[in-house]
């Protein structure tokens, strides 16, 4: 099984090594794509797709495999940006924007803030368990099933239509009004729950309001 990447603790060496490693992996990929594009094997949208797909897969692998949790979070940003690129390719500019703003920006920043606030050690954290081989096997089986199902099925022809913000708003607030409102309910209960669970319990006899 894949050995975890042995990254040194010093930031400067880490950056150098990480950059080197990324370019060693990414450069051939980009070169191959570029050659295929130049020789006309790939159309422009396909070229952009494979570029973004590489970013998504690479970012996701980095998020899972890197031991340093901040590096893993940065890998997540890369994956989100790749997904945003694919959304753009599908002419869903709104989704692409949301993907960058909410996932690439908001969620990851929150994650990093969370790490800082909780004084999580920014050194390597061991997240291994005895189930790792089993999880690996289950993941492989699941991935195989997905790929099999997707290759096997005859999907409807992809027709990319640009959906304007206006139509999107109408769909979101009229047709999907109920899921939208229920989603706000999730936020409400999550907020209540977070406060209730995180609040320091008053000792018996102590006033609740203090």
């Amino acid at each position: 099984m894949l050995r975890r990447l042995p990254l040194p603790a010093q930031i400067d060496r880490t950056i150098t090594l990480g950059g080197l490693l990324a370019s060693v992996v990414a450069a051939p990929y980009i070169v191959v794509l570029g050659v295929l594009f130049a020789t006309g094997e790939l159309s422009a949208p396909e070229f952009v797709f494979w570029l973004n797909a590489g970013l998504v897969v690479g970012g996701a692998l980095a998020a899972v495999l890197l031991r340093h949790i901040v590096h893993a979070a940065l890998g997540l940003v890369g994956a989100s940006l790749g997904v945003a690129g694919i959304f753009l390719l599908l002419a869903s500019e709104f989704l692409a924007l949301v993907q960058v703003l909410v996932y690439g920006g908001g969620v990851t920043i929150l994650l990093l803030f969370g790490l800082m606030m909780t004084r999580a050690t920014d050194g390597p954290i061991v997240t291994d368990g005895a189930q790792k081989p089993f999880a690996f096997g289950a993941g492989i089986v699941l991935a195989g099933l997905f790929v099999g199902a997707m290759l096997d099925a005859e999907w409807d022809a992809l027709n990319v239509t640009v959906v304007g913000f206006r139509e999107l708003g109408i769909r979101l607030y009229r047709d999907f009004g109920i899921p939208f409102e229920v989603a706000s309910l999730v936020l409400l209960v999550a907020l209540i729950g977070a406060i209730t669970i995180a609040r320091r319990e008053p000792a018996p006899g102590e006033d609740d309001s203090k």
């Binding site: 999907f176 899921p179 229920v182 989603a183 999730v186 209730t196 669970i197």
Partner: peptide, 29 residues
């Protein structure tokens, strides 16, 4: 109750997640 009434995958998923989120909190109280 909304979950039982939902007839659309989006509505079903959102209602199911709300149900679950509340239950995680209830268990953790």
């Amino acid at each position: 109750m909304l979950l039982a009434q939902a007839r659309d995958l989006v509505a079903i998923f959102v209602a199911l997640e709300t149900t679950s989120a509340v239950q995680y909190i209830l268990v953790g109280l």
